[in-house]
Design a protein around this nucleic acid. Structure first.
Lengths: 155, 155
DNA sequence: GGCAATAATATCGCACACGACATAAAACAA
DNA sequence: TTGTTTTATGTCGTGTGCGATATTATTGCC
């Protein structure tokens, strides 16, 4: 019945032929899977991304996190305030340049890293996806990301 | 300085080695790119996904859209109300089963499909990614999606 | 028929995302 | 130095996403 309609939809607008949809859906599914592991640690998924950046780079400016996470400050500022309230980080204006807000890890925030170490492997185990597929997908996406990012900023 | 910290972060927690981050970032970049094309048509990106499903399947129940978009009703209900307010769809309780809300396309909603036909190609042109990469990525994600989806629902 | 279990949709609260715009400090130019 | 521009961060409003829970209608079981 309504299935017959499919034939009249141009192929480039059929969900199955889109790149955008599986990307969007897969991203949300991964987020949900991570969330199960992160909630007990007191983190949301975007907060986890930000903490990964801070474990590598703190103390650093908000702008550094913004660039690496590809998130604007209007998203980051409230998120960072929540991380501060939880006691994972400290925010302070730079003395050199009063515009810059520096982010520092607290002891609690540094300790959180140990709790997160097992998270990626736990997910891989749960999913039973071949290592090969993961690597292939990661490399494809990593290659695509700069192109997408460039596309967003011009025009 | 802070760069030296990188060496102390276990490799599975370095952003570069994660699958989750490029997936998350790429999905947001794609959304932003689509949004530029969709805003003039009066659609958000998730609304566009829902409309694609409706072009193929309307009239159909909310549940059908929910399953195909992999979105819960707590996300869909407000989104569908907005689509109705814009005049793209009509919502009505089924007479057979009073629990079911049926979704119908209006003339305006059906017409919108023609305006959207050029959107996917416009993006492909803009991005200059090889056709091969796109196909490979789409197929990988499509293969991964059922596994992720299954992982979300059990345990 | 009566009544528990199930199903479809909705409400609520919280945390993103992001466009548009605001603010304040630093850099730069005339 | 003084006015303009740029930079870093922030606020505001709208629209998702989703866990937890509520509501109403149907189904199934005795």
């Amino acid at each position: 019945m309504s299935q017959a309609l499919v034939d009249t939809v141009p192929p480039q607008l059929q969900l199955e032929n889109q790149l955008c949809f599986p990307l969007y859906a897969a991203s949300r599914m991964i987020t949900r899977l991570y969330q199960d592991k992160l909630t007990p640690l007191g983190l949301t998924y975007p907060q986890y991304i930000v903490m990964m950046i801070l474990w590598e780079r703190a103390p650093c400016a908000v702008k550094v996190v913004s660039e690496h996470a590809m998130l604007n400050t209007n998203t980051l500022t409230p998120l960072l305030k929540r991380l501060e309230q939880q006691g994972f980080i400290r925010r302070s204006r730079s003395v050199d340049d009063e515009r810059v807000v520096m982010l520092h890890l607290t002891e609690l925030g540094r300790g959180l890293r140990d709790d997160c170490e097992c998270v990626p492997q736990a997910l891989l185990n749960k999913l039973a996806v071949s290592e090969n597929d993961i690597v292939q997908l990661r490399d494809l996406l990593s290659r695509l990301l700069p192109i997408l990012s460039a596309g967003v900023n011009d025009d």
